[in-house]
Design a protein around this nucleic acid. Structure first.
Length: 491
RNA sequence: CGGGGUAUAGCGCAGUCCGGUUAGCGCAUCUGGUUUGGGACCAGAGGGCCGCAGGUUCGAAUCCUGCUACCCCGACCA
């Protein structure tokens, strides 16, 4: 089985690379660091978008679109923001090509230099706050709750499909508020939206918390994040939400008149998730047979494969298959009937397993005779024979079972790979040899975090919200600590 | 951006050291037939500017120079 995939236990990162390609999710393009997201991969992203978009709308947000290009001068307005992104910006300097005078090919027209260079957005805070300045005069104009679905570019040195690409797709929410409290509440609310989505749609349990100063977003006063644990024991940040304070309002002079008639700067948040979630989805659940997709995000939830000899059999089987398909669809499921005659059933079985389709129905002549179908589930790779009249209800329940099982499995895995330690040698041993989350005490200083990072490659993923107050000593320096924080090596 | 590796048919590779028939092999593709309850079999066929651009040579996949992309390891990051 799965003889085309690298074994997960032998070489996890090669397994991941193979899987992305073989499951037809994405491939590298002719442009360095930029991927082509293939139809099946994009279909999963569309499912992610659809569900998140619903949640954004349900929490009062609206979609809009801002430019891809940002004038260079905008970046220098917020000091730490420039510093954070300067090293990875693509810059547009010219607006025209012309024919090369030697005859072949085109060159950049040196006379078409832009007066002000444009930055391809690595994120949109600057252009958006420059715009919000015109939208906001009074407290009556607030809050502004805008999201945009867009692509952004960060010129990464080393890229991996979905996990880190030079161009990626994401959504970025940018909100403006009259009070600090309201903005803080918004940032927390959206983090909860992400956490809920990760858990209940992606079947990935996450730890919510604050980022340390070192890991904070450039320009934020506070960065909140959800962290997920991958099967190789590395952490992956699955969503971030920033409380931006008045930093961008001050940088772009966005003031409003409050109810007391006084001028004040606007309070801001921004929050986002990217196509990196695809990487999380793949790495959290999949196995040596291929993808394992959570039913709520699977583009195809049920596939029906006919097994037949000759057209007579196929006709009978198709009749039942099409009836089942339409009944399942009427019950809200997405179904594909694969009656291609160009591939054998065994090939199709393996192929849909590779692609992570949660449920497969096989119908052969024996089933027609006995009034049954064979139902196989992807997560456990088990099969059972079900009476045809029960199949709709059965599969509806089965999809729920699969959802719960995948989530349960991921939760158990995380539990088994979360360690508590107060001993530095043990800490190093866990990080180096076992991987996983390590809850340990930290003295709260950026210097100590940096030191631990240099020595172990582990960083503080988050300071968890639910980490209880607990007197202790810093794992590295022995200085006093008030609570445990979450350490791990990260993607 | 530093170190290492790779680039030959759609995919995976051999050939490159030591230049010399018509550049091979497996998978995939196409045609015909037999098949179909876990990645089918037999027979035949098609497919190549040897990554790109220069150079050396009577002659270059093979030697030299430059460029580009990908993979692995570091530094940086969602």
């Amino acid at each position: 089985m799965a003889k085309f995939l690298t074994n997960r236990e032998e070489n996890y990162s090669q397994w991941y690379n193979d899987l992305v390609i073989k499951a037809d999710l994405a491939e590298n393009s002719a442009v360095r660091g930029c991927m082509v997201i293939k139809p099946y991969g994009y279909a999963i992203w569309e499912r992610i978008q659809a569900e998140l978009d619903k949640k954004f709308k349900a929490t009062g947000h609206v979609n809009a679109y801002f430019p891809l290009f940002i004038p260079k001068s905008f970046f220098s307005r917020e000091a730490s923001h420039v510093e954070g992104f300067a090293k990875e910006c693509a810059v547009v300097t010219h607006y025209r090509l012309k024919n090369d005078h030697t005859g072949k090919g085109v060159i950049v027209d040196p006379e078409a230099r832009l007066e002000e260079e444009l930055i391809v957005r690595p994120t949109s805070e600057t252009i958006i706050w420059n715009t919000y300045k015109n939208w906001i005069q009074s407290y009556r104009d607030l809050p502004i709750l805008v999201n945009q679905w867009a692509n952004v570019v960060r010129w990464e040195m080393r890229t991996r499909l979905f996990l880190r690409t030079a161009e990626f797709l994401w959504q970025e929410g940018h909100t403006a508020h009259a009070t600090r409290e309201e903005a803080v509440e918004e940032a927390e609310k959206m983090l909860n939206v992400y956490a809920d989505f990760a858990t209940n749609y992606m079947c990935i349990p996450v730890i919510k918390g604050r980022k340390s100063v070192n890991e904070r977003f450039a320009g934020a006063e506070e960065t909140l994040a959800i962290e997920a644990l991958m099967q190789d024991g590395k952490a992956l940040q699955a969503g971030t939400s920033h409380f931006l304070g008045q930093n961008f309002a001050k940088a772009f002079d966005v003031q409003f008149t409050n109810q007391e008639g006084k001028l004040d700067y606007v309070w801001a948040t921004s929050w986002g998730v990217s196509t990196r979630l695809m990487g999380a989805l793949i790495m959290a659940h999949s196995d040596n047979n291929g993808l394992v997709l959570p039913p709520r995000l699977a583009p195809i939830q049920v596939v029906i494969v006919p097994i037949y000899k000759g057209n007579d059999q196929l006709e009978k089987i198709s009749e039942l298959a099409l009836k089942l398909k339409s009944d399942l669809e009427n019950s809200g499921m997405t179904v594909k009937y694969d009656d291609r005659d160009t591939h054998k059933p065994g090939f199709k079985f393996a192929d849909y397993e590779l692609k992570g389709v949660p449920v497969r129905i096989a119908i052969g002549p024996r089933d027609i005779e006995q009034g049954t179908v064979e139902v196989a589930r992807r997560d456990t790779l088990t099969k059972e024979t079900i009476k045809t009249e029960n199949v709709i209800a059965h599969i509806k329940n089965l999809l729920e079972d699969i959802h719960n099982n995948i989530l349960q499995k991921a939760t158990t895995f995380r539990k088994e790979n979360t360690y508590y330690t107060d001993n530095w040698d043990e800490f190093r041993d866990i990080i180096e040899n076992k991987g996983g989350f390590v809850m340990a005490h930290w003295d709260g200083s950026p210097e100590t975090e940096e030191l631990i990072k240099d020595e172990t490659k582990a960083t503080i993923r988050v300071i968890p919200f639910d980490s209880p107050d607990e007197e202790g000593k810093c794992i590295r320096t022995g200085r006093p600590s008030e609570r445990r924080v979450l350490f791990a090596r990260a993607y």
